[in-house]
């Protein structure tokens, strides 16, 4: 997305669970499968993953339960120590950080939201949200002021003195989100934040989340097992299976060109016209003629125009600048599901 260096950059990372993961990994033949490792009593939580997360992008890691997505995100924040490989976060090799520096990194740069909220039951909403600030030693007054700011941001005014137990699930997760934002983190980890909520609340919270992201423009790693949610939110999606990444690409590419059979199965029932955008179809070596369409338009939104138009190639522009043109026939294929 940008030419700056990535915020998180990991190379060939492994996370193996078992009695002696380092020893096992060192002796293991390189092409061992997940099942073969299981037979030896070792679980490959993360299997040879290399991945960059760029500044300001939203990377969604998608996978079914047990695919290693939660383990991977915990490696980024070193809640898990990786078995081998390197992870750089904000330019620092986090595996070489001393405990003190790691704590400092978490206190100043990272925020995390958990699936079952992880709220402290004995603290009120305000105290929960101010908790990270308290830990880094801010005084009561500034802490309170900042907490009230975030409470307003997530729309929980008037509930400052409530205890987690007295709130609904959606409200509890708002507290979790507010807490993770209190320290103004650069990197925001969200581990299946909406999975524990019922479908209607989930939709509402996704909208709320998109609104927040418009406002804050954080670097985000978002975990989900819900493919639709991934398509809805992501700049890029990484699909995981048995600890390894099957494909990491933009939603358009994933839907249009699934890399493996496993990925294709996910895309099967997706209404591609709602996912694929003009930008994804644009071919850079084409120019086309006439009025351009904006890159962020979905095929579904352009449907009437695509049917009525007669041009073979329609120019596509992003932020006013032409980036190529899309083939109308191809776009119609997507619209009609003839892909």
């Amino acid at each position: 997305m940008s030419s700056e260096r990535p915020v998180i950059s990991c190379k060939n990372i492994w996370k193996v669970f078992g009695d002696d993961p380092e020893g096992y990994l060192a002796k293991m033949p390189p092409d061992m499968s997940f099942d073969e490792m299981s037979e030896d009593g070792y679980i490959a939580g993360v299997k040879d993953v290399s991945l960059d997360v760029n500044k300001g992008e939203m990377l969604v890691i998608m996978g079914l339960s047990g695919s290693g997505k939660s383990t991977l995100v915990r490696c980024f924040s070193r809640l898990h120590d990786i078995t081998s490989g390197t992870i750089e976060v904000a330019g620092q090799d986090i595996m070489s950080l001393a405990e003190k520096d790691l704590i400092e990194l978490r206190r100043s740069k990272m925020g995390m939201v958990f699936q079952s909220f992880g709220l402290l039951p004995h603290r009120s909403v305000l105290e929960n949200i101010a908790f990270p600030l308290e830990m880094r030693g801010q005084d009561k007054h500034t802490r309170r002021e900042r907490a009230l700011e975030v409470i307003k941001l997530v729309g929980l005014e008037g509930r400052e003195d409530f205890f987690p137990r007295e709130l609904s699930g959606g409200q509890q997760q708002r507290v979790g989100i507010a807490r993770s934002l209190a320290i103004e983190p650069d990197i925001w980890f969200l581990d299946e934040p909406f999975s524990a909520l019922d479908p209607l609340i989930r939709k509402e919270m996704q909208d709320e989340f998109l609104r927040l992201q418009q406002l804050l423009k954080k670097t985000i790693v978002f975990i989900t097992h819900d493919f639709d949610e991934a398509l809805r939110l992501a700049d890029r999606i990484a699909i995981m299976k048995e600890g390894a990444i099957e494909q990491c690409d933009t939603p358009d590419k994933i839907v249009l060109k699934p890399a493996t059979e496993y990925v294709r199965k996910f895309t099967e029932d997706v209404d591609k016209a709602r996912v694929v955008r003009a930008g994804g179809l644009a071919e850079a070596d084409q120019t086309g003629t006439g009025d351009p369409v904006d890159a962020s338009q979905t095929v579904r939104k352009m449907a009437r125009m695509l049917v009525d138009d007669t041009r073979d190639f329609i120019p596509v522009s992003r932020a006013g600048k032409p980036i190529g043109a899309l083939s109308r026939a191809e776009a119609l294929d997507v619209l009609l599901g003839d892909q």
Binding site: I103, R106, L120, H122, M135
Partner: peptide, 24 residues
């Protein structure tokens, strides 16, 4: 998750015990 939330908040070991483990 409560433990992880405490760690992500940047608790030291003593803070973990005092503010996270014992109250929970």
């Amino acid at each position: 998750e409560v433990i992880e939330a405490g760690k992500m908040a940047g608790c030291t070991r003593f803070q973990m015990l005092r503010h996270v483990y014992i109250p929970s």
